[in-house]
Simulated assay, not measured.
Amino acid sequence: MLTTSASGTLPPPYPALLPPTNPKDVAKFFRPIDRRDLLTSLAISIPPFFTSFNLNSPNPLSIPIAEARGLFQMPPVRLSNRYFLVRAGESEFESLGIINTNPVAKTSMDSGLSEKGKKQTVRAALMLKAMGACERNCWIWPSITQRAYQAAEIIAAVNGVSRRCTNNYIVPEYSFLDARGLGAYEGSNLESISKVYESDSLSPNIKPPPIDDGTPNESVADVFVRVTQLMSILETQYSEDTVIIVSPDSDNLTILQAGLVGLDLRRHSDLSFGPGEVRFVDPSSIPTYKQPASAVYKCLNPPSCT
Rank of each mutant, 00 (worst) to 15 (best):
V77P: 03
S304I: 12
I154V: 15
K298D: 07
S219Q: 04
N54F: 08
I170G: 00
P12F: 12
N189G: 11
S143Y: 04
I193F: 11
P283Q: 03
R78K: 12
M127P: 00
A184K: 06
A258W: 00
E277V: 14
G132S: 11
G274Q: 13
P32M: 03
N100C: 12
R136S: 11
C138R: 01
V158I: 15
L190H: 02
C305W: 07
N189V: 06
P19G: 03
S143M: 08
R36L: 11
M127C: 13
V86L: 15
T3G: 10
G214L: 06
T228A: 10
A157N: 10
F53N: 14
S304W: 06
L253T: 01
A125Y: 00
R136E: 13
R35P: 05
Y169A: 12
I33T: 13
I44W: 12
T166R: 06
P75M: 03
N102I: 01
D222T: 11
T21L: 12
A148T: 05
L234N: 01
P204C: 01
P76I: 04
S111P: 01
L300R: 10
N189C: 11
I155L: 05
E277Q: 15
E92G: 04
P75A: 03
C165N: 14
P302D: 10
A130E: 15
R226S: 10
L190M: 13
T51P: 00
V158Q: 05
V86R: 00
F93T: 06
S175Q: 08
F30M: 05
P47L: 10
P275I: 00
S192P: 00
D222S: 09
E186K: 04
L300E: 14
M131T: 00
N301I: 09
F29I: 02
S175D: 12
V278W: 02
K195C: 06
G262K: 06
A130T: 10
C138M: 05
P48N: 09
G8H: 09
P19V: 03
V225S: 03
T254H: 02
L113F: 06
N205E: 14
R147Q: 10
V296F: 06
L39R: 08
D241I: 00
D200S: 10
P204K: 02
G89I: 04
D25W: 04
K116N: 10
P210V: 14
N100H: 12
S199D: 15
V246K: 05
P103V: 06
E191G: 05
S192K: 13
A66P: 09
V223W: 04
A258P: 06
E218M: 05
A221K: 08
S5N: 14
V77A: 14
S41G: 13
T21Q: 10
